[in-house]
Design a protein around this nucleic acid. Structure first.
Lengths: 140, 140
DNA sequence: TCTTGACTTAAAGTGTACTCGAAGGTGTTC
DNA sequence: GAACACCTTCGAGTACACTTTAAGTCAAGA
């Protein structure tokens, strides 16, 4: 693994974020870049991994503010590990709840599609399934 | 099932949308309300089902604009059924893709939590899994 | 009678996360 | 020497979906 360095343009293509966004994230403290003797940003493989990781977190629903908090904690060292772990656990739990909810919505959607396909009794109204829906929430 | 009527305040609690939002949705053409002799909105069980249904759609990722389109098509009658069906199918496909992506992110998160718990070799860096991540996208 | 809750229009505000452009500058490459 | 990619600050713009306020009216219930 050569320690290749990337300037912002190339890096932006690698991680799929615009140069605008990269500078914005840096402003926000989510990313740190190194500079060459002219003040030009450069990034390494390590930065690719780091951006990848924060994009995973973001992809599970973390807001930029939460992300900032995570980064701050990380900077504080190992004593914040429990807190970081808990943050991730909560994020995970939330995301799993989101998936469950999404799947519930999908079930209704599927039934509706079947209805359109005539696989279901057409006398049932457009919005037949709301009661099932409420049921699902009742035991939360 | 009595044909109970609900005014906006009660209805808002039933469906979990603020009165502001209900009026807003009505402005946008997503909901229709009836009025009593004083011009006061009232809603019925049927409206509960309808709002439930659009919230399902919304929950799977449909934007208000898409929702509006669906409602417009619905108002045009049965000849738009194929188009509505396809809309729902696409929504369903998109949502399923979202779930798949979310689950991928979750996998990384879980691994990271394990790492915090010491279940994984601690010499591996914070952001170890970005390469796996990129792999997942490569065959899309 | 007073409070509560409803009504109207129209405009402004909120939060999130970018996204872009202006204006002026530096260094590298063809 | 021109083109290009980068740098800076800073403010404005965009999209989405509400959310709130203002200012005034109306009607039923305690």
């Amino acid at each position: 693994m050569a320690d290749k360095q990337y300037r912002i343009g190339e890096f932006s293509k690698l991680v799929g974020l615009s140069t605008y966004t990269l500078r914005y994230y840096e402003d926000q403290g989510l990313i740190v870049s190194q500079r060459d003797e002219n003040g030009v940003r450069y990034y390494t493989e390590n930065d690719i991994r780091w951006v990848g990781f924060i994009l995973h977190l973001k992809g599970t629903g973390l807001r930029l503010n939460d992300l900032k908090r995570y980064v701050r904690l990380r900077a504080e060292g190992d004593r914040t590990i429990p807190e970081r772990r808990d943050m991730l656990q909560k994020t995970k739990d939330d995301a799993e709840a989101d998936i469950a909810e999404l799947q519930m919505h999908l079930k209704v959607l599927s039934r509706k599609i079947d209805w359109y396909d005539g696989k279901v009794d057409h006398t049932i109204d457009d919005s037949e399934s709301f009661h099932d829906y409420l049921q699902q929430f009742n035991d939360k």
